[in-house]
């Protein structure tokens, strides 16, 4: 029987999120038991996948306003001056940092994918074969942020 491959808990995830959004971007970011306002309207979602000793994914779901605020902090630009490409670049990098730090807590060798970003209304990002391991809600700069860690379970033989 193999030992644990993932040794992080929700406190680690809160710390990582605080370091990425709070320390690095300077955005006031606090965990909440449940998002006060579900992510409605336009949502920007980003995802990185981890493959190897542990396989799964880390996704970020942010409101369009938070995506723009985070990008403005990263580019140090007026939020209204940012292009969609710049906003997506920024949100993808946030997933990369969050996912990379989650991967650092995985025992064994694993690979991190490049980030993927999607934007839309009322959509659901699905990682085939993966189930939700952790899901935490935050309020950052007054806007909702959801961090989800998905885990791919052992593959079954056909």
């Amino acid at each position: 029987m193999r030992g644990p491959r993932v040794i992080f808990d929700e406190d680690d995830l809160r710390t990582i999120t605080d370091e990425v959004f709070g320390v690095m971007l300077g955005l006031d970011c606090a965990p909440v038991d449940r998002a006060p306002e579900p992510l409605r309207g336009t949502v920007v979602a980003s995802c990185v996948q981890v493959t190897g000793a542990w396989s799964g994914a880390v996704t970020l779901d942010v409101s369009a306003d938070l995506a723009r605020s985070a990008a403005a902090a990263m580019f140090q630009a007026d939020p209204g001056d940012l292009s969609v490409e710049e906003i997506h670049d920024a949100v993808g990098e946030l997933a990369n940092m969050t996912g990379g730090n989650v991967k650092n807590l995985v025992t064994g060798t694993a690979q991190l994918s490049l980030p993927a970003v999607a934007q839309g209304i009322d959509f659901h990002m699905r990682i085939p074969g993966a189930v939700v391991r952790n899901q935490l809600d935050f309020v950052c700069a007054g806007e909702p942020l959801r961090v989800t860690v998905l885990e791919r379970r052992e593959e079954r033989s056909a």
Partner: peptide, 8 residues
């Protein structure tokens, strides 16, 4: 590869 990160 991230322009945002390069700026940071």
């Amino acid at each position: 590869d991230s322009k945002a990160m390069r700026m940071i």
